[in-house]
Design a protein around this nucleic acid. Sequence first.
DNA 1: CACGAAATTTGCAGCGCTGTAAACTGTCTG
DNA 2: CAGACAGTTTACAGCGCTGCAAATTTCGTG
Lengths: 373, 373
Amino acid sequence: MTAGQDFQPMFENLQRWNFVVKVYCAIVAVARCGGLMGVRLQDVAELAGVSMKTVSNVVRDYEHVSPTTRERVQKAIAELGYRPNMMGRRLATGRTGLLALAFSNVTVPYFAELSRAVSAAAGALGYRVLLEETDGTLAGERAVIASSEAGMVDGILFQPSMMSSVEISRHRGDLPIVILGEGAAPLPVDRVMIDNVLAARAVTEHLLALGRRRIGFAGHEAGQLSATSIQRMMGYQQALEEHGIRPEPRLLFPSAEISPSGAVQGVGAMLDAGVKVDGLVCRDDLAAIGALRALQERGVRVPDDVAVTGWDNIELSRVTFPNLTTIAPDLDGLARRAVEMLVERIGGYTGDGRHELVDYELLVRESAPSAAN
Amino acid sequence: MTAGQDFQPMFENLQRWNFVVKVYCAIVAVARCGGLMGVRLQDVAELAGVSMKTVSNVVRDYEHVSPTTRERVQKAIAELGYRPNMMGRRLATGRTGLLALAFSNVTVPYFAELSRAVSAAAGALGYRVLLEETDGTLAGERAVIASSEAGMVDGILFQPSMMSSVEISRHRGDLPIVILGEGAAPLPVDRVMIDNVLAARAVTEHLLALGRRRIGFAGHEAGQLSATSIQRMMGYQQALEEHGIRPEPRLLFPSAEISPSGAVQGVGAMLDAGVKVDGLVCRDDLAAIGALRALQERGVRVPDDVAVTGWDNIELSRVTFPNLTTIAPDLDGLARRAVEMLVERIGGYTGDGRHELVDYELLVRESAPSAAN
DNA sequence: CACGAAATTTGCAGCGCTGTAAACTGTCTG
DNA sequence: CAGACAGTTTACAGCGCTGCAAATTTCGTG
């Protein structure tokens, strides 16, 4: 905004700025003009004196077009302000250039960050991403998989939370699909994930290396466990057992609802019930943030009294106090591979389902510092 | 998930579960069958022994179809697993049923929550939402507004952060647009927002009512201010002046980068420079979360030493410790009105730009409790 | 039973674009 | 200068669906 170009945050200027905006608005109201509507390939072709197909060729950068023609057509395009109509193109080509990314809810930071990574990866391959939220319900997931509309997207990236692999595998066979994450995935379908069990072991071992022995697990579902929770709990269990510690069901801190508030309540209730821990492996960063609050509310010091770990490395995990030791999955790598595989499927690849692992990293921060500290 | 139906979170079961999954996968691999490809309206028509148009009428719930015919067609649809092809329909109708929602970045919790509210509101009116991220850059915003593809969406909901109203008003006139939020908006275009100045006054007055007198403002841009920051700062200034307090530029805590980490650094630097405050109005919840950390790192107690307020009422603002007193905009109301107005424009409404305000609420929580406490 | 009105159903054109294959250019040989 | 050839350009038939208007059937009534 020109008016704010050399704006100094001095209070007097604010009023002036507001005035300038008003003037601008008035000018704009006068200057505004309706845009051209519905310029078609045909119109460009007529103006340039060539066939529609030639214009189409120019628009799509087909190589065998003479420089002369190309220039003339481009001039006509500019003059008319022509912009190709996607629906027409897509009907003709059968491809939409759109990938669906389905998960429970964008307000979960991990999914928001995943969505950015996927958008970037898809963009690099010429695709755009249509977000589909399932609300984590079976009905929502079914709606996505068995979408009643055809031709909306060329393929689906799907992070299931409730749906069984059996059901996923029965999805409409004509729409390529790639499963993200640790959810149940049928063998014949491509999938990309990190090794949750291994990562959970790593994070638990980190707490063990700090000398913690009463290590709890927090933030999993109170009812039916998701595949994600199961795998992370398995890794947690394995690490404990390898150190000769018998996992105690009493040290599991489930959340009535998978959300930070759920974790506040879940962890809070256990603490109030007198359960003692000196380490807490949380299912994800949101649970860890909730756990942090539950602990701090009760005057428990983190990490001194209880060391806490998260999972996902969401942006806010760097800003909590203390900030979170967490598992940082290689989101870009995950997104890139997933999109690559999906695009290969769209391109006609029909090999067996590929199940690939991507990297992750244990980020050691304040909530569970390294042993040296 | 059948296998997990009666799953108890006992460790022994985990291994068993894993085995069950493997078995399922094997079964599925065998059972999988390719779906039918490309069932067309024509195919259904032939099977049902009616014309394409009649099938079309059934699919779209046209009223004048005899029950007999309708049933026969529906049977054929079910038998063939027909699903209408969106591209075809959209080419024919000229409408896509898609609205673009453009803002800087989904990983900003406010935008994620906005996006859900908008999706819900759009869904209620039969539209779906295509997210467009601008990365908060001028180039990104221009790309959205002047999108080189036509016909992708029927209209745009746009929350600008950099673009001037002059430029917005020059957008392609054939695509309806509604501006969200406090960004610069040209008069002729519809807009929905909350009254930022008033809300900022309310939040500042809340701190004043707590007896705070050295109240800072944190989290705004260090360079050129966004319209959002400007309006909130104006309200902050007004409240101070009304209480006979001269606003001090020294009490402004800008962030080098609009992010929680940016706020940690910005606020931290000011504190280290010896600036003393007893209240902090933050531009948004993320800044407040950053401020919280900066303060706590230095042993400053919140709210005892410094009361802090946020803005947006993001989910995490309820879970920080202390949790945040914040401005809670009526997101659902905002989304509903915005979508309504956009749909009216799509429907052909051509009146003047409407600028509407929606409600907000001051949520008093721990970081700046009510005076009674 | 005939006739007009109302309720159904249909044929067809075409939305805007692209794939294919055929029709042109012009240039380069023999 | 004919013929071969590579480089350009074009005509045309749809992609799958819907709007329109006309055709057909059904129904109620005199």
